[in-house]
Design a protein around this nucleic acid. Structure first.
Length: 271
DNA sequence: AAGTGGACCTGCTAGC
DNA sequence: TGCTAGCAGGTCCACT
């Protein structure tokens, strides 16, 4: 579910409402990808500040540190006044004076990790080595082109890796490559400066558009207010193998790269 | 250093 | 109807 747009849409849907709330209780369900990293009672009585996003992580500011949240493959957050009893896949509740923030995550690839300012633990490690934000003005065609030098891996898995630029996952990497007209099998270092420029623009536009459409709801994504996204209705290639390209009519192909599906138009997208 | 494949975990769907 | 194989929005880690 959650690539950059879904994470950002989630953030926008509860950040203003949770700011200033005080934590009253914490409930943990089954283990997530990493342990919380503190005793739940250490969070009690702390007041929440701003909610930030870095790559596909959310960062909830607390008085004495913060919580780093990742939604994994199947996670979503809900912020509600009166939550029902936790279901089988509800693995974290943050009960506050303004409502309860609940993480639902069937596959449990997600995580909630505590960190404070002197932290040298998991949270810091997770954020180290992340690439540039796609909306950062420093993310340019020239940056992308030079970062790809010395990379013989194909451009699509290079976008997913997250060490050059963050935010694109399996849907938006395929969509951005289609918009840029770049064959996903093109090796990184073979991408010309001009094509890197087109790709940088396409990636930013694709992600921006997806945020504006509320993200993609392929199966069960909802923002923290329960609202579904609509980007999936605008996908040009993702999940459309065998169907005609919206631009030229050629059948969309599905291939596997790095154990993930890639979708592209063999006519519109060139090396 | 960069590239590759396995691992984590559960649910759903297509096919027999 | 029931079982099984394959697939799913992520990314860390060990190994070459």
């Amino acid at each position: 579910m959650p690539e950059l747009p879904e994470v950002e849409v989630t953030r926008l849907s509860f950040a203003a409402r949770i700011r200033g709330a005080r934590i009253e209780a914490v409930r943990l369900g089954k283990p997530l990808r990493w342990p919380l990293g503190c005793e739940p009672r250490e969070l009690l009585s702390q007041t929440l500040g701003d909610v930030h996003r870095r790559a596909k992580y959310l960062w909830l500011e607390l008085e004495r540190g913060g919580l780093l949240i990742h939604l994994g493959m199947s996670g979503s957050l809900a912020f509600v006044d009166h939550p029902g009893p936790p279901g089988a896949h509800d693995h974290f509740d943050l009960v506050t004076t303004r409502g309860t923030l609940r993480l639902t995550d069937a596959r449990r690839f997600g995580a909630v990790v505590w960190a404070n300012s002197t932290d040298t633990g998991m949270a810091k490690k997770l954020l180290a080595g992340l690439g540039i934000e796609p909306f950062d003005p420093a993310f340019t065609g020239n940056y992308l082109h030079s970062a790809l030098q010395g990379r013989r891996v194909a451009i699509k898995p290079a976008l997913l890796a997250g060490d050059i630029v963050v935010g694109a996952g399996n849907i938006y990497a395929s969509e951005a490559l289609f918009e840029a007209g770049v064959d996903p099998r093109t090796r990184g270092r073979r991408l010309s400066r001009a094509r890197a420029q087109r790709l940088a623009v396409a990636l930013r536009r694709t992600l921006q558009s997806a945020v504006e459409l509320g993200g993609s709801t392929l199966r069960d994504f909802r923002d923290a207010q329960g609202v579904a996204g609509e980007f999936q209705l605008h996908c040009a290639v993702y999940g459309r193998q065998g169907q005609p390209c919206t631009r030229c009519g050629t059948a969309i192909r599905r291939i596997v790269q790095g154990q993930r599906s890639t979708y592209f138009c063999p006519r519109c997208q060139r090396p």
